[in-house]
Computed example of a mutant assay.
Amino acid sequence: MKVTVDQDLCCGAGNCVMTAPEVFDQREEDGVVVLLAPEPAPEPRTRVREAAQMCPAGAIALDETG
């Protein structure tokens, strides 16, 4: 799995950080998403999928090919 985020789309809701904190964080100054693990380990992948689905701005993209 490869994860990408579009910081320009991010609205700072924080759902991703609450769902998968080992993969996502937020900038202190504006709450915009920060990607900590672009290729997460197998264990949090279910939560990463949930975070992507819950993102109100659609700022998280997943590539699960290969």
Rank of each mutant, 00 (worst) to 15 (best):
N15T: 06
K2P: 04
M18A: 15
G14W: 00
E39P: 04
V48Q: 08
A37V: 11
E64V: 08
D8A: 13
G12Q: 09
T65S: 15
Q7L: 00
G66M: 14
V3K: 01
C10R: 02
K2I: 15
Q53V: 08
A61L: 09
V17M: 02
D63C: 09
L62P: 12
G14Y: 05
P21D: 13
L62A: 11
P56V: 04
C55Q: 10
D30Y: 10
A57H: 07
G31H: 06
E43H: 05
C55I: 10
G58I: 07
R45V: 09
A51T: 04
P56G: 05
E50A: 15
G14H: 01
C55M: 12
D30E: 09
K2Q: 15
L62Y: 14
P42H: 00
V32T: 12
L62I: 13
K2L: 14
A61E: 15
T46V: 10
C16I: 01
D25Q: 10
D25R: 09
V3A: 04
L62K: 08
C11H: 13
D30L: 02
L35E: 05
D6Y: 02
I60A: 09
E43Q: 11
I60M: 10
A51Y: 07
G31L: 06
C16P: 06
V33Y: 05
V23Q: 04
D8T: 09
A52D: 13
C16Q: 04
P44K: 09
T65W: 07
R45Y: 08
G12R: 01
V5W: 00
P40V: 03
T4F: 00
N15K: 03
P40D: 10
M54P: 03
E29N: 14
A41R: 03
P38I: 01
V23N: 02
D8C: 03
V23S: 07
C10P: 04
T46E: 15
G31C: 03
A41P: 09
Q26T: 06
P38A: 07
V33P: 00
Q53T: 03
T19L: 12
V33D: 00
E50T: 15
L62C: 13
D25S: 13
E50I: 15
P44N: 03
T65N: 14
P38W: 03
P56R: 04
A52I: 14
Q53N: 03
E29M: 12
R27A: 10
P44E: 09
D8Y: 01
Q26F: 06
V3P: 04
G12S: 02
L9Q: 14
G31P: 06
A52K: 12
V48H: 08
E28H: 07
A59Q: 02
M18V: 12
V23A: 01
A37C: 11
T46M: 02
A20L: 10
L36A: 03
M1C: 13
R27V: 05
T19G: 02
A57Y: 12
E29T: 13
D25H: 04
E39I: 08
Q26A: 11
Q7Y: 00
G12C: 06
E29C: 05
R27C: 02
V33W: 01
A59K: 02
V48N: 08
T65E: 15
P21Y: 12
G12F: 07
M18T: 13
L9P: 08
E22L: 04
P21K: 07
P42C: 00
T19A: 11
G66F: 13
A61W: 05
A51P: 10
T65A: 13
A57G: 11
V32M: 06
M18G: 15
C10M: 01
A51V: 06
P44S: 06
R27I: 10
